[in-house]
Design a protein around this nucleic acid. Sequence first.
DNA 1: AATATAATTAGATACACATCTAATTATCTA
DNA 2: TAGATAATTAGATGTGTATCTAATTATATT
Lengths: 89, 89
Amino acid sequence: MFLSQTFAALADPNRQKIIKCLKRSELPVSAIAQNLDITLATLSHHLDILRRADLVSSRREGRQIFYELNLSVADELLEGVAKMFKTGK
Amino acid sequence: MFLSQTFAALADPNRQKIIKCLKRSELPVSAIAQNLDITLATLSHHLDILRRADLVSSRREGRQIFYELNLSVADELLEGVAKMFKTGK
DNA sequence: AATATAATTAGATACACATCTAATTATCTA
DNA sequence: TAGATAATTAGATGTGTATCTAATTATATT
């Protein structure tokens, strides 16, 4: 199942907090870090997992790396979940 | 986060298959087992996780135990996911 | 009561994952 | 070109999880 990776990515509370941070706007890693009580290394790891699940994208700007939500994937997720439980097929 | 348990429960491919089985109708464990390539013990474990996440319910009927999907929780999940990504607190 | 059937529970194992510290890469500035 | 800042990568550790076999519980049948 392709949704497995997405669900696994969303299952961690720290990654949910990251997503919440990014709801309003894109942010550099250092800004995200201020909302979580983990090291930068651990945060980097979580961002990597979110990126591989295609839930966020990143771009470099100078020394900083900005992360933003991929809202299109969020839509696909909603569709997937709906289909998962809706009868028919 | 309360959604973490739900996401974790849905992240496993075998548990997704179980949910797919139960979409059409409730089923006894032995019937679910025919669709998965795992032992009954492992299946029991997966059903336990789905039940603790409130995604399924069970009832005994003679020697068999029937499992069924909790569709109301599926609706809550959809809401939760939508809120998770929709802008505005 | 003894046996068969349906499922769960116990115990063990192997692998994945969240986390940390320390080291490394990349960019900017003095 | 040093030195400082921003983030990732490497390596280690403890915990959690998916899986199995074997044992146990619960119900039905003979």
